[in-house]
């Protein structure tokens, strides 16, 4: 069970907003992670480790930069809930073993709501709303269960 506070964003959050181009050459993900969502005060002012990032449609659209999900993981984002995910971001996040939840009603979640996520339900503890979670296809779940695609190779 994951519980955390929602840090909410709108539709089409692109990878440039998650981590800007000028930081991709920094030597470590830890150094890059200081610039996560740097132009979004709802993140920079309110995020604490273990919080849950909530997006609208097409979360993570844009570039293939794996640095984007990597800095989200590095900063301690517990899970990402979105109405839908962009393809490359989705694949990168799965490869890194990040918990992704596709929830068509993500827009009903407000900034600061307390969320609880278990195996098959997302519960908004603030509003009392409960949403079923579609399970990942077995193939992808097996990758997440091994902590990412490299864990799968080394099984």
């Amino acid at each position: 069970m994951i519980t955390g506070k929602a840090i909410a964003f709108g539709n089409n959050i692109d990878t440039d907003q998650i981590i800007g181009a000028q930081y991709l050459t920094l030597p470590t993900i830890t150094q890059m992670s200081e610039h996560l969502f740097e132009h979004h005060t709802q993140f920079t002012e309110h995020f604490t480790k273990g919080d849950i990032v909530v997006g609208g449609e097409n979360f993570g659209c844009g570039s293939s930069r794996e640095q984007a999900p990597a800095v989200l993981k590095e900063c301690g984002v517990a899970a990402i809930v979105a109405a839908s995910f962009a393809r490359i971001f989705f694949r990168n996040a799965i490869n890194l073993g990040i918990r992704l939840i596709e929830c068509p009603a993500a827009a009903e979640i407000s900034a600061g709501d307390r969320l609880a996520i278990d195996h098959d339900h997302l519960c908004n503890l603030t509003t009392g709303q409960e949403y079923p979670i579609e399970p990942l296809p077995d193939f992808l779940q097996a990758i997440v269960d091994r902590g990412g695609v490299i864990g799968r190779l080394q099984k």
């Binding site: 570039s63 293939s64 930069r65 794996e66 999900p69 490359i88 694949r91 990168n92 490869n95 890194l96 990412g148 695609v149 490299i150 190779l153």
Partner: peptide, 14 residues
């Protein structure tokens, strides 16, 4: 198609 660095590293090897 575009992929991330982990997939690229895996593809370099495999």
């Amino acid at each position: 198609t575009g992929m991330g660095s982990t997939d690229i590293a895996v593809a370099w090897q495999q």
